[in-house]
Design a binder for these strands. Structure first.
Lengths: 148, 148
DNA sequence: TATTGTTATACTCTATAACTATA
DNA sequence: TATAGTTATAGAGTATAACAATA
């Protein structure tokens, strides 16, 4: 059994995109969780609230599609947010299969504060990049994620 | 209840780093899984094998540290790799608490092929960026992840 | 027949606590 | 006392299948 025969064409694991994306997300999640803790919400919950405010108040299914998550995942997220008084479900008058989901006044205020908190978390996360590089980093991520 | 009062300072959820990193990683994971399927290994397993080849053959704990994961997570990963005949645990002669972990010959061949496969998955993942931008994207990720 | 919300269920990934064997 | 490996366990997060209500 030979020792340490470095293989050509096998780069260090810390240069691999899989490693980098995993740990980048872990670091940002930790920073965001910490920043949101005073508000008593998670980053996932803030993301749902953010999606509710884009365009018309969505059904649960439409809200899930805006976040590119499954509708069954949305159920539990809305249960949590409703229990905190941050969102309301109301039956759609025109199609009673659908629930229209909207932020409450408390939800709107919490969203604004949570956005400020996560903006700050993002700034800390990106602190090792120049401001121009940080903008480019975000654009590159949008490019590789695509429309989904 | 007002409808759709767009709040100033609340950007679309698809511009948030949390959303982008989550879905970027999801997309790369899907591409990598597909590329590795003929080899019968996961991206996580390939990452462990890659870490084993950097520097001296590590103990389980050192291998975990190279990947910045918990040593209890490493146990199950090595169980899987050992069951496939890709790695070997052998007791450290100098300190019998430690297991030295090394790739088998099959493991080394699988690592080389798996690296080629995930290189190709990374190229597809980055296809919307120029070659120079792709390099810069990777460097930026390394900068924000830091030494951990 | 198809769609929306829901529930039950299961699977992946991860970490914490406690055990064992060694040091 | 402390460390390396292990096990049991639990908690996120996610998805699939099946059901009820409605279209």
């Amino acid at each position: 059994m030979k020792t340490n025969p470095t293989e050509p064409g096998v780069p260090p694991v810390r240069n691999r995109l899989g490693y980098l994306l995993k740990h980048a997300r872990e670091r940002l999640s930790a920073l965001s969780s910490e920043a949101l803790q005073p508000l008593g919400i998670s980053g996932r919950q803030l993301a749902v609230m953010t999606a509710l405010l884009e365009g018309e108040p969505p059904s649960q299914l439409e809200a899930a599609q805006r976040l590119a998550i499954d509708r069954t995942t949305m159920v539990a997220l809305l249960d949590e947010l409703e229990a905190k008084g941050l969102v309301e479900r109301r039956a759609d008058a025109g199609d009673r299969r659908r629930n229209i989901v909207a932020l409450t006044d408390l939800g709107r205020r919490t969203l604004v504060e949570g956005t400020r908190a996560t903006d700050q978390a993002e700034r800390i996360f990106l602190a090792s990049l120049s401001s121009a590089d940080a903008d480019q980093f975000r654009r590159m991520l949008q490019a590789v994620v695509g429309g989904d």
